[in-house]
Design a protein around this nucleic acid. Structure first.
Length: 688
DNA sequence: GCACTGACCGTTTTT
DNA sequence: CGGTCAGTGC
């Protein structure tokens, strides 16, 4: 095997023992190296199930699994464990969480669950809604958690009134989670870390499950992940991390580039391999990419070398407004698609924020071109899906009242706010879960007749379906459950438009499919297991996403979700100050801009053959059109900005001939004028 | 208990 | 502009 690997790649594949840092630039065959390395480990006699490979997304995990399967052939029965940090932590916690005083059977709260809990907490400490809303609270808590700040410490660092309030609520929130036997997304990492720090025996037990640990996208590890990696690898020291500091784009989630920058310091005996030969993009595209990223100060100075010389020069297009931008881009794609050389899925439209794709969707629909919008509102965020999932969660653990409260009167069964209030008060008084109170005849007797019957109905529903979900296939149980609560009538009641109803029923059908897919794939399928997968955006969800990506359609997605992908044609739209770089990053000064630049770099390096950057001269915001300023990155990547860090690189001398010639070719294009140097750009920055 | 209406406001990016 | 939410009327 290992055909066609260049020397540094071979070195990365063959260095099997000890710490190894692979600094792999964009498009340098990183994934390939990782999979080959794992295959090599297995061939050299390491048992596959003693290898743990951690990827950034579930999708990457599945893909890696498949590639390794291809490399090793069918005969290899045992598979290496590939999962994301979060999924791996779930596995650890499912085995060990009782050490932290949580019930063994805990549930994972998604965003909606968190919101309900937050709302409850705020009501409890009687915070008026306009002072601190559930969303604000979660925003604060999220911020603290990504920085590993515990409730007790949050109070100390809080400065504003709002923060103090939030810190107080944070303590309650965390207590609430524990009481309900629930963990939120951040807890998966935080609790695992806590487990490893406080219980060394547990740490050793978990670390001993594997002899080799590989971490992909290491530049995006945050503090907890960093320490979890250490905890797992410190005994065997067979740690291989792969990443590119220039593609670190998750700083806002607590990721620190420093982790990858100081790897050799943490593991002094480590081997370092640099991969700089880019096989993805043409030389023209890489020139632009290299020139741009050279503006960042804190980085391993490396330069992508093109394996594919020449190519078409990247274009910059300017449009009068965002509608025209969408029209222009779509017209361009439509034109190219009329040629036989290209397929819809050769094209990607990349943008910074989730409000941007709307205009493009309308245009694409009008042009009758197939497209997929990746991300955005998740399938699992749809009301009907959330409702049905709430039923399943309640059946799985009735004592966790968040789900119970969601569907307690959905569809309406005469158990309205008043009755629920009575029940909740009673539950609080007794210090028991709401669920228990629903079954207490003396309590229920106070309620109106319909409410009484509703309580009975809920109790018997859960009793019945707890049994039915133990039988296979679970899909049958799910359908029976929908029948029983007559959810279809609820949809008819709520939505007059038949299309709407149909779409919503279809969503439920899709959920059933996901459940079915889970059942066939999982070793021992359980309702709880399915719900875990759903919470983690697990494989069943990814199948859908994957299918979408394979659907031969134009792909619309954010720059963040584009990480790791490649397309022959890339359109980066909305290249304006305030959007890329985003105004929130502009406002904080310093390193935030560097991350925006990396984001831009990620976008540019997705392109294999053609790259088109575009901007709108005015853009509507909240109904009003406003003038825009070209993104400073445009000046930087065409070489019209002073580079303070240019130093040894060749970024400076080349004039932006690329865009010049292009200007003549496309009259609509006006590259940012020289008179407005990038250094002047921030002058219009809004300070509020 | 539920639907409708108008005031309000403006979450960057996601596992 | 468009989504959310509290308040109002049935």
């Amino acid at each position: 095997m290992a055909h066609g690997l260049n020397p540094p790649q071979q070195k990365a594949v063959n260095t099997l023992a000890g710490p190894l840092l692979v600094l792999a630039g964009a498009g340098t065959g990183k994934t390939r190296v990782v999979t080959y390395r794992i295959a090599k480990l297995i061939q050299s006699g390491i048992r596959a199930d003693r290898i743990l490979a951690v990827t950034f997304t579930n999708k990457a995990a599945t893909e890696m699994q498949e590639r390794i399967g291809e490399l090793l052939g069918k005969k290899n029965k045992k598979q290496p464990a590939t999962s994301t940090f979060h999924s791996h932590c779930v596995r650890v916690l499912r085995r060990q969480i009782q050490h932290l005083g949580y019930p063994r059977k805990f549930s994972i709260y998604d965003r909606g669950d968190q919101e309900s809990l937050a709302r409850g907490v705020l009501r409890e400490i009687r915070v008026p809604n306009e002072t601190l809303r559930p969303g604000d609270l979660l925003y604060f808590i999220g911020g603290w958690k990504t920085k590993c700040i515990r409730p007790a410490d949050a109070a100390a660092i809080a400065s504003t009134d709002k923060e103090h309030l939030a810190a107080m609520a944070y303590r309650r929130y965390q207590k609430g989670l524990k009481q309900r036997g629930a963990v939120d997304f951040d807890d998966l990492l935080l609790l695992t870390e806590e487990l490893f720090t406080n219980f060394d025996a547990v740490r050793r037990e978990e670390a001993a499950l594997f002899d080799h640990l590989l971490i992909d996208e290491y530049q995006d590890t945050n503090g907890s992940q960093y320490r979890i990696v250490k905890a797992l690898a410190q005994d065997h020291r067979n740690l291989c991390v792969v990443g590119d500091d220039d593609q670190s784009i998750y700083g806002w989630r607590g990721a620190e580039v420093e982790h990858i920058l100081r790897f050799s310091h943490d593991w002094p005996d480590s081997t370092v391999v640099w991969l700089e030969n880019n096989y993805r993009s043409t030389a023209e595209i890489l020139t632009v990419a290299n020139r741009l990223i050279a503006f960042n100060k804190k980085r391993h100075p490396k330069e992508l070398k093109a394996a594919r010389p020449g190519g078409k020069q990247p274009r910059i297009e300017q449009y009068p407004n965002e509608t025209k931008e969408a029209e222009g881009v779509v017209a361009d794609i439509a034109r190219l698609l009329r040629q036989p050389d290209f397929e819809p899925n050769d094209f990607a439209i990349l943008f910074r924020t989730n409000e941007q794709p709307r205009a493009f969707e309308t245009e694409l629909r009008r042009a009758g071109l197939p497209y997929v919008l990746i991300g955005g509102m998740s399938f699992f965020d749809r009301k009907e899906v959330r409702d049905v999932l709430a039923y399943m969660k309640m059946i799985d653990s009735p004592t966790d009242e968040v789900s119970l409260l969601r569907i307690i009167n959905t569809p309406p069964r005469g158990l309205g706010g008043k009755s629920v209030e009575v029940l909740t008060k009673e539950a609080v008084r007794q210090g028991k879960p709401l669920w228990d109170v629903l079954g207490q005849p003396t309590v229920v007797a106070v309620l109106p007749d319909t409410a009484q019957r509703a309580c009975e109905e809920l109790r018997s529903l859960v009793d019945m379906f707890q049994q039915r979900f133990k039988k296979r296939p679970m899909v049958d149980a799910m359908r029976a459950m929908l029948e029983r609560v007559d959810y279809e009538s609820e949809l008819q009641r709520l939505y007059d438009n038949p299309n709407d109803r149909e779409a919503r029923m279809a969503a439920l059908e899709e959920l059933a499919n996901a459940l079915g897919a889970y059942e066939t794939k999982a070793k021992k399928p359980t309702l709880a297991g399915f719900l875990d997968d759903v919470a983690l955006g697990g494989p069943d969800f990814n199948d859908e996403k994957d299918k979408q990506l394979k659907r031969n359609a134009i792909v619309l997605m954010t720059l963040h979700s584009a990480k790791g992908l490649e397309f022959p044609h890339v359109y980066m739209v909305g290249m304006e100050e305030g959007l890329l770089p985003h105004h929130r990053s502009v406002a904080v000064e310093g390193e935030a801009i560097d991350e925006e630049r990396r984001l831009c770099y990620v976008g540019v390096t997705r392109a294999q053959d053609y790259l088109t950057l575009s901007m709108a001269l005015t853009r509507r915001k909240w109904g009003k059109p406003r003038d825009t300023i070209p993104s400073r990155f445009l000046f930087e990547l065409i070489g019209q900005a002073e580079n303070p860090h240019a130093g040894n690189t060749a970024t400076r001398q080349r004039p932006p001939g690329a865009t010049r010639t292009q200007k003549a070719a496309t009259p609509a294009t006006r590259p940012p004028s020289k008179t407005r140097a990038a250094t002047d750009l921030p002058s219009r920055r809004r300070r509020t």
